[in-house]
């Protein structure tokens, strides 16, 4: 295996809030290889977005404390000067956010925004950057790119805006692409187009991708590996087949059970109730001392659950290179 694009070690993020210190991310370890897609899954408040914003240096430095290491192609993002970080962001990593309407500047044309990104990192003339912008818009499948380049964001549909966002993120051929709920606001048909697009570009350029989503269906389609987050911790990770087909953590099982499944045949008349996870996630200002999922857990199969934090340990099959790990005291047979 070639050198990983990104190696995250013991990433922790604390935020100062009026209600006390919020422990938003509590020790994440993962790697993303070239051409590999790692999906980070979890519900709102699980810390998945904050964990990547921390990598990008996009958290407010006044109230956020980030510790750990995050090596992007061997260089620690968390130890970089702001100036160096700014230079790394374009060619090193690109980011696509959930809402393309609020992440694009409404008073600049699409072209201006692309050119700005290109010229910030490459020494090219305005004309050359503009030509490259048209090329990029064509690459992400925007119809009539030569005219689209002079359009304003409001003239484009949601799917087209998200394509523009992807074009901007890819304009400096980054080694790592972070997509944070990039298709959540889109219709399923458009989502399918965007996923196809990212997969195609990824295989052409060998980009490593972190795909943040709460949609396990999307995960099944795109991910090589999955990391399930809850309460700022990774509670389970492994290959997409291991995690979705053979989930071991009660939280992962709960999430999968709560999902209406289009592939499941409809029984006549009697439909099952969906499995639910009672309660709501714990506030990051007041995490339980033991297993983070304990207060909502239907199993609670071990005396240590309430008091002792379970470490992420290898479970079930999985190879040494791609282990399947879960942070739970509950054994194999505790359903």
């Amino acid at each position: 295996m070639s050198a990983p694009v990104l190696e995250v070690e013991d990433l922790r993020v604390r935020l100062r809030t009026p209600r006390g210190t919020a422990h938003v991310v509590n020790g994440l370890d993962y790697t993303v290889g070239p051409g590999e897609t790692v999906a980070v899954v979890g519900e709102s408040g699980s810390g998945k977005s904050v964990s990547v914003l921390a990598l990008m240096g996009l958290l407010p430095s006044g109230s956020a404390t980030v510790t750990g290491r995050a090596l992007l192609q061997g260089e620690d993002l968390l130890a970089m000067s702001p100036d160096r970080l700014r230079r790394v962001r374009g060619p090193g990593m690109g980011m696509v956010f959930q809402d393309p309407m609020t992440s694009l500047n409404p008073v600049l044309t699409v072209g201006r925004q692309l050119v700005e990104g290109i010229r910030a990192h490459q020494r090219v003339s305005k004309q050359a950057a503009r030509a490259r912008a048209v090329e990029l818009l064509a690459e992400v499948g925007l119809p009539d790119p030569a005219r689209a380049v002079d359009r304003y964001p409001h003239e484009l549909s949601g799917g087209m805006r998200q394509r523009v966002m992807i074009a901007i993120a890819l304009s400096n051929s980054p080694a790592l692409l972070v997509a944070d709920e990039a298709t959540t606001a889109l219709d399923v048909t458009v989502q399918a187009q965007i996923i196809d697009l990212v997969e195609r570009l990824q295989s052409e350029h060998g980009t490593g991708v972190i795909w943040i989503t709460h949609d396990l269906g999307v995960v099944a389609g795109i991910a090589d590996r999955v990391l399930v987050m809850y309460g700022g911790r990774c509670v389970e990770d492994g290959t997409v087949d291991d995690v979705l087909d053979r989930p071991r953590h009660p939280y992962t099982r709960g999430l999968l059970g709560a999902l209406p499944d289009l592939a499941e045949p409809l029984a006549d008349g009697s439909r099952r109730d969906l499995a639910t996870i009672p309660g709501v996630p714990p506030p990051p200002t007041d995490l339980p001392p033991g297993c983070v999922f304990w207060p909502r857990c239907p199993v609670r199969g071990d005396a240590r659950c309430e008091t002792e934090q379970p470490p992420l340990t290898v479970v079930g099959s999985g190879s040494a290179a791609l282990p399947h790990r879960a942070a739970t005291w509950c054994g194999e047979d505790s359903r």
């Binding site: 119809p143 549909s157 799917g159 087209m160 399923v188 048909t189 458009v190 989502q191 399918a192 187009q193 196809d196 949609d215 396990l216 269906g217 999307v218 995960v219 099944a220 389609g221 991910a223 997409v240 087949d241 979705l244 087909d245 999968l256 999902l259 499944d261 289009l262 592939a263």
Partner: peptide, 22 residues
């Protein structure tokens, strides 16, 4: 066909009709 389902094997093998345009 565009609705993703949480089954990796099925997702990989499914025929998807990708609609063009908006």
């Amino acid at each position: 066909s565009a609705v993703p389902v949480p089954h990796p094997e099925l997702e990989r093998s499914r025929k998807r009709t990708v609609l063009r345009g908006d």
